[in-house]
Design a protein around this nucleic acid. Structure first.
Length: 425
RNA sequence: GGUGAGGUGGGUGAGUGGCUUAAACCAUCAGUUUGCUAAACUGACGUACCGCAAGGUACCGAGGGUUCGAAUCCCUCCCUCACCGCCA
């Protein structure tokens, strides 16, 4: 959630930022939060003052009893009882204000970074880089990846549907080996770049889901295990970032750079149409993720570092791609700045999102109370970032389509040692 | 799933209703002393909120309750450990 401090310190700027998301009531939302916070402060002062009197009086009562002054003690007790009625009333009021404040803050998305363009939806996103030197030309005979999957019998959606349901693919033979090789490749690259490799739990509790912002706003998107009150992770961002929930980190040890492979589970309720064909959208998919816990001062340098890392991966895989800066309307709820990476699908003739690299600034760390100690010994919130490096299905789709010949699929050089063969046939 | 024992600051650990404002020790930091290191001594040493400040309030796994007053008594839940059962 947004820090109230930021809203107070530069209210006009915060309003402008929030309006970039297309929220017309931005000013009203922000004023309401500040107003509630004022109320909270006032109630806190009043309650504390009264509690102080009760504490002092209670100690006095103890002394009176020791001196055997029972009747005086009983009179004093009556006084305390009356104060406690007031305290209870204040506390109820306080609970109500806190609850309203919490709701107002949970309903408020992160403030977009200065560089984020205003806009409604993905058509307003800004293409900041285009790298098509690996070719975006298509031949008439090119088959889309779902036909190639069937032709070479490497990914079987129908079989997955039989075992589980639609959107749960079965990778077979060279398909399975390519998938495994890509995961290994992505992990190795992340580790070489200085990340700590982690194997996290694939199921998390509600506190963790709340910490990274999946709850309450993406409740319906996650698979939920009712009996144990646990959620299947939609991305390993959730367990990785929550490793540091409620921790105070040493400034000298920042940044923490983590990477993990995990399957990702998404219900994707409500999605339909051509977008979901083949590997384009699945309920279970594989992804290698990178999470960075950064000092606030250099979080945007870390963001650039992650962007560059992702670019290198796509270069090595010899895929045409572009980098897109999301506009306010398309920006994720918790993000301040997001770059999407899209690879070109030569058979589908469209761009497919394969990575999303974001800086959340203090939005997640505020919710999670993730702090570091500054030079003066005070605690401050860290910045959190994450990015996909990379999501597997669409990468596989793009590789299959781009490298197809009439008789086989050649693999990019870099991946050959990882899979142990040169082509799929 | 069953039985039992537990959960107190960075760590160990005392604390069965008011002398706890959470002792003591260890660790850490600063200072003194000192060829260096070490030792010794002195001091500092949790988090959050309110307050310009002085200061105040809350927190002893979590949430309720009893009481003038709760780390301490009561209730519910969570977690950890041990053993048993099941099991890759």
């Amino acid at each position: 959630m947004v820090e109230v401090r930021i809203l107070r310190e530069n209210t006009p700027k915060a309003i402008t930022a929030l309006e970039k998301r297309g929220i017309e009531t931005a000013e009203q939302m922000i004023r309401e939060v500040i107003e509630l916070d004022d109320q909270r402060k006032e109630l806190q002062s009043k309650t504390d003052a009264l509690l102080q009197k009760v504490n002092e009086q209670s100690r006095a009562i103890g002394d009176l009893y020791k001196q055997g002054m029972t009747s005086e003690a009983n009179e004093a007790k009556e006084l305390v009882r009356q104060w406690k009625v007031d305290i209870t009333a204040f506390q109820e009021e306080m609970d109500a204000v806190m609850s309203n404040l919490e709701h107002a803050l949970l309903a408020m998305p992160n403030l977009p970074h200065d560089s984020v363009p205003a806009g409604q939806d993905e058509s307003d996103n800004e293409v900041v880089e285009l790298h098509d030197h690996f070719g975006t030309d298509s031949e008439d005979w090119y088959k889309p990846h779902w036909e190639l999957m069937e032709k070479y019998d490497i990914v079987d959606l129908a079989l997955g549907a039989k075992i589980t349901g639609s959107g749960f693919p079965v990778y077979k033979g060279q398909g399975a080996r390519l998938q495994r090789g890509l995961i290994q490749f992505f992990l190795n690259e992340a580790v070489s770049a200085g990340c700590l490799e982690v194997i996290p739990p694939y199921v998390v509790n509600a506190d963790s889901a709340r910490g990274t912002g999946q709850l309450p706003d993406k409740d319906g998107q996650m698979y939920y295990v009712q009996k144990d009150d646990l959620y299947l992770i939609p991305t390993s961002e959730v367990p990785l970032t929550n490793m540091f929930r409620n921790e105070i980190l040493e400034a000298a040890k920042l940044p923490f750079k983590l990477t993990a492979y995990s399957p990702c589970f998404r219900r994707e309720a409500g999605s339909y149409g051509a977008d979901v064909k083949g590997l384009n959208r699945l309920h279970q998919f594989d992804k290698v993720e990178m999470v960075v816990i950064s000092h606030p001062e250099n979080s945007y340098e870390m963001l650039d570092w992650m962007v560059n890392h992702t670019k290198k991966l796509l270069e090595k895989l010899e895929l045409p791609y572009r980098v897109v800066r999301l506009c306010g309307g398309d920006l994720g709820f918790t993000s301040a700045l997001t770059y999407d990476f899209e690879v070109y699908s030569v058979a589908q003739k469209r761009w497919l999102e394969v990575s999303s690299v974001s800086n959340f600034e203090t939005y997640q760390s505020n919710r999670m109370k993730m702090r570091y100690r500054n030079d003066e010994g005070k605690t401050e919130l860290v910045h959190t970032l994450n990015g996909s490096v990379l999501a597997l299905p669409r990468i596989m789709a793009a590789i299959l389509e781009k490298n197809q010949t009439k008789t086989q699929i050649d693999l990019p050089e870099v991946i050959k040692p990882y899979v142990g063969f040169d082509c799929i046939k």
